[in-house]
Nucleic acid binder design. Sequence first.
DNA 1: GTCTATAGCAAGATAGAC
DNA 2: GTCTATCTTGCTATAGAC
Lengths: 200, 200
Amino acid sequence: MMAIVSDIKTEAAPRRDNRRPQLLDAAARSFREQGYAAASMRDIAAGADMKAGSMYYYFASKADLLIAVHEEGIRRISAAVDDAVALADNPWARLHAAMSAHLSVLLDGGDYAQVVIRELPLDEQAVRERLVPLRDEYEARFAQLFDDLPLIDGASRRHLRLLVFGALNWSQTWYRVGGDTPAEIAGAFLDLLKPLAAKS
Amino acid sequence: MMAIVSDIKTEAAPRRDNRRPQLLDAAARSFREQGYAAASMRDIAAGADMKAGSMYYYFASKADLLIAVHEEGIRRISAAVDDAVALADNPWARLHAAMSAHLSVLLDGGDYAQVVIRELPLDEQAVRERLVPLRDEYEARFAQLFDDLPLIDGASRRHLRLLVFGALNWSQTWYRVGGDTPAEIAGAFLDLLKPLAAKS
DNA sequence: GTCTATAGCAAGATAGAC
DNA sequence: GTCTATCTTGCTATAGAC
């Protein structure tokens, strides 16, 4: 009997942290639109229909908010890339799938991924130390994909990775909706590099 | 007689705008180290051994300071690339020279060029409208260099330019002094694309 | 949990003495 | 030209009522 009452109480308890997701969405949007330094806690709170003071119930500081946005952004883009890679069955197809997924999330996938790529606060050393490992862990997937490619002798896998990954991330600056799709961009870049494939 | 006196006075007059260059240097350094939004006018002034109020004699606003830094940065990197290109005598050599010069200025050339590449204030529309044409004019040089390459059929010059130029600019994020030199990076990237050269 | 109110501070910019 | 002093505004973060 007591156990039943206790269970009912647990089930009926209001969910905690109910509005944390909206707050995080609003933060991601403000950070993307204005940059981390220029975004204000008031604006972020307003984006979640909240007053500035209230958000400190969920996040202790603006830096914590940025870290949480990065974590969520990395989680999303990692999942998208992993899912896409799993469907491909050879090294070049896996790389193409990963590039397409990376670009899709970065260019059409909302605010989180764009913040991850663009916002590394240059001062605030403590924040950098939290965020850089998140990025490195994500990028390690790509290093593996490049290592697995069968290439002609003399091709530098490291420079190939830096070339491609840099170009993908820089695409934020020139991409426009209505032009090439992410999959087309990834395909066009890879076509330029296919001559490096080893003759089988 | 009067003319002579007048000439002497003109010649003896103190040079105007004497400390504008130091101020610009200090601004470039602060913008690079902290980002435009996070840099403060007080810090910039202190970097030129000046008080904050004094710098408004030279620049009417923080935005004007950023525009002036961009203009000087574009001037420097354009001159470096033009000089390097002039010494090369075929399309691939010209592109390699341009890439090396671009990277040298960007990676080892001080604060101005890094600000040009990295700092486009996301809000402040009026500032963007001043800065984007500066960048576009610079980038047009590279478009010409790619158009001049003799390539095998089917290679997209536009995507090749986006691939290479993006990778060059992104190199700021991974470049470390003591690793590859700018010329080596440019050479390694181009080696990966040489299979696209048309058979002569 | 969310609010109002505000502490405490730093920012960009201006005024006027020198 | 450069200074000091200050205006005005906006910021992050906190306190305490509800």
